[in-house]
């Protein structure tokens, strides 16, 4: 850890708060513990327990994102909100860009779409940049759609490869080790992570837009296309944030909950899902949200690419120093 980076982190956090408060966003402070979560099959979570000798016990889970608490507040108050808080993701690798406990910056803008969020995020970068911020982390953001990136770096037409077998075949044709029975999403990720992501330009931040609708998430579909209104921001080879024009159709959210809950059954740490949760979308304002890995944001703005330089206690070190109590998987 470098104290210079901690000082920068503190400065950037102060700038971030001031940035959103100036624009009239309400800063929320929601619990880290939740009795149920939004089902996301790509994530594993941490389970814990409330234990009161008189009242009883209750299963609780640490939030992998404050979204589960923030969206009901947006539905209730119809206001733009932001929050900086600790989030927790289990089972992921630990290293240069991953720590199971990390800081998330989430901001939701009422009445906005993902394009407004992109402009807002560029403004945020401008407001928080310091003298050491490298060119690769300075706005404006370069923009590219997922289909353009596939065409550019693989020669494949992703729009016409919406069928599982066709995409698996295309991946195999590129010499990749795609299992014959791979799902569309896994085959997509294998091609993306092997051929596309490492080739993305890194001379300036890149907003990669229009993600496949076949990747389940709570972003709105772009009607008449196989895409969702979602972008991810890359800077210096790091994935910094994920933005949606939020899905606000309760039916679509309910269907997504059902599909993801079914997939969640095979997860290592199952959690409770509130079947009533999608009802908040019966009166949900049009809105766009961004979830940004705040630690990575600080790394980018200071020209760094390794969390162990920023975090006073990186989890990799905690693991290493406590190997003796590590139980076999």
């Amino acid at each position: 850890m470098e104290t210079r980076l901690l000082e920068e982190r503190s400065r950037i956090l102060t700038e971030t708060r001031a940035f959103f408060l100036r624009r009239g966003y309400l800063e929320t402070d929601t619990p880290a513990l939740a009795p149920s979560l939004i089902p996301e099959s790509c994530l594993e979570v941490f389970r814990t327990e409330y234990d009161n000798p008189f009242l009883g016990r209750m299963d609780l889970w640490l939030v992998p994102s404050p979204e589960v608490w923030m969206k009901p507040l947006i539905a209730r108050y119809k206001r733009s909100v932001f929050q900086v808080c600790k989030c927790f993701r289990n089972s992921e690798s630990v290293g240069r860009l991953h720590n199971p406990e990390f800081t998330m910056l989430e901001y939701y803008t009422v009445g906005a779409d993902s394009g407004t969020s992109r402009e807002l995020t560029e403004e945020l970068f401008r407001a928080c940049a310091g003298p050491d911020t490298p060119a690769w982390a300075r706005p404006p953001f370069r923009r590219m759609t997922m289909a353009e990136a596939f065409r550019e770096y693989t020669g494949l037409d992703l729009e016409s490869l919406q069928d599982r077998e066709a995409l698996v075949e295309a991946g195999l044709g590129k010499g990749l080790l795609v299992p014959r029975e791979a799902s569309w999403e896994d085959a997509f990720n294998q091609v993306f992570l092997t051929l596309v992501e490492p080739s993305l330009p890194q001379d300036s931040p890149l907003a990669l837009e229009r993600y496949p609708a076949q990747i389940e998430c709570l972003a709105a579909d772009i009607p008449g296309t196989p895409w969702k209104d979602r972008w991810e921001l890359y800077a210096g080879g790091m994935e910094l944030c994920n933005c949606y024009t939020e899905a606000s159709d309760p039916g679509a959210v309910r269907a997504s909950f059902e599909r993801e809950s079914a997939r969640k059954k095979s997860s290592r740490v199952p959690h409770r899902v509130d079947p009533g949760y999608p009802e908040i979308f019966t009166d949900f304002p049009p809105c766009s949200g961004v979830a940004m890995g705040f630690d990575r944001f600080v790394l980018a703005l200071t020209g760094e690419r390794d969390l162990s330089r920023l975090l006073p206690y990186p989890f990799a070190r905690i693991l290493e120093e406590n190997k003796g109590v590590l139980r076999t998987p």
Binding site: Q190, L193, N242
Partner: peptide
């Protein structure tokens, strides 16, 4: 690597022991 909203993958660079060519696989 953990793509946004995706499962965990191992991205490896592997060298063909017969010709020295390095390939990336995920």
């Amino acid at each position: 690597v953990n793509p946004g909203k995706g499962a965990a993958f191992a991205r490896v660079k592997a060298k063909n022991m017969r010709n020295g060519n390095v390939v990336t696989q995920t």
